[in-house]
Nucleic acid binder design. Structure first.
Lengths: 119, 119
DNA sequence: TTAATACATGAACAATCGTTCATATGTTCA
DNA sequence: TGAACATATGAACGATTGTTCATGTATTAA
C-alpha cells in the first residue's frame, strides 16, 4: 500500500513516522471534500457580496441585482449555488422571494476570514 | 447614478430604502474581493488536505506528496498558492524544506467550516 | 384571459484552475 | 567536480466556473 505512494510521488520517503502519524489524524476523505466544496462557494466575490448584503438585511432578487449592478439572471444563478450550500434561505410573498442568511455560521466564517485578510 | 443600476439589472427597484441602507453597510469592494480570494484558496480539496496535514505536523514536500498519493510537482504548485496567501510558512534545512501553518487562523476557519458542513 | 412582472433555468462562451510533463535550481556527499 | 536528490517552475492540456442570452414558470392585477 505504501509502495503505491512512493511510486506516485516520485521520491523516497524521508519521514515515514511523521507520515504515518499525520495519516491517522486525517479526517475521512469525504469530510475534507465537503469542506473544500463549502469554501469554494465562498470563493467568488459576487457570492461574497451577496452574502454580505444579506447579513445586513433580507432582500429580494431584484434588490440584490440593483445593489450589485448585475443582471437578475446572474444573481439568480448564484443564489441557486448559495441555496444548495445551505447558506441562504428564502420566503415567498406573492411574486417576490426574499432571501436571507440560513444561519450564523456565515457571519462567523466571514469574521475569521476578514481577520486573516487584515492580518 | 441609481439609473445605471436599474438599466443593468433589468428590473424596477422594489425596495429602494433597503438597497440604500445595505449599500451603506457594505465594506469597500477591495476587502470583499480579498476575502473571496482567501476562500478561493481554501476551495480545493488538495489544498484543504495539505492544510489539514500541516495542522498535525510540519512536513517536507516529499512527505506531503507521499501522504496524499500525488506527484511532488502538484504539491509544490499548491504550496506556492498557500504560501502566496500567507497560509503556510517554511524553514530550510539543507536540501529539505519544511512547511507548516503560518498562524492559527487556518485552524479557526477550518473549525467554523466543519461546523457548518456537519450541520 | 391577458399583460406585466419576479424569478428560474438551459445552452453556450470565455476565462480560470489543477495537474502533468519536462526541465531547471540548489544542496549534499562522495 | 560530478552524481544524487529535494524542490521549483513554465508550458500545455482538460476540466470547471461565472456570466450572458433567450426563454420558461408562476403570480398579480386589470
Amino acid at each position: 500500500m505504501l509502495y503505491n505512494e512512493i511510486e506516485s510521488c516520485n521520491c523516497s520517503i524521508i519521514h515515514e513516522d511523521i507520515i504515518e502519524k499525520v495519516r491517522e489524524s486525517m479526517p475521512p476523505e469525504e469530510s475534507l471534500y465537503d469542506l473544500a466544496e463549502l469554501f469554494k462557494v465562498f470563493g467568488d466575490s459576487t457570492r461574497i457580496r451577496i452574502l454580505h448584503a444579506l447579513s445586513a438585511s433580507e432582500m429580494c432578487v431584484c434588490d440584490i441585482a440593483a445593489l450589485l449592478g448585475m443582471t437578475q439572471s446572474a444573481i439568480s444563478h448564484q443564489l441557486r449555488v448559495l441555496k444548495h450550500a445551505r447558506l441562504v434561505k428564502y420566503r415567498k410573498e406573492g411574486k417576490v422571494i426574499y432571501y436571507s442568511l440560513a444561519d450564523d455560521h456565515v457571519n462567523q466564517i466571514f469574521a475569521q476570514g476578514l481577520e486573516h485578510v487584515n492580518e
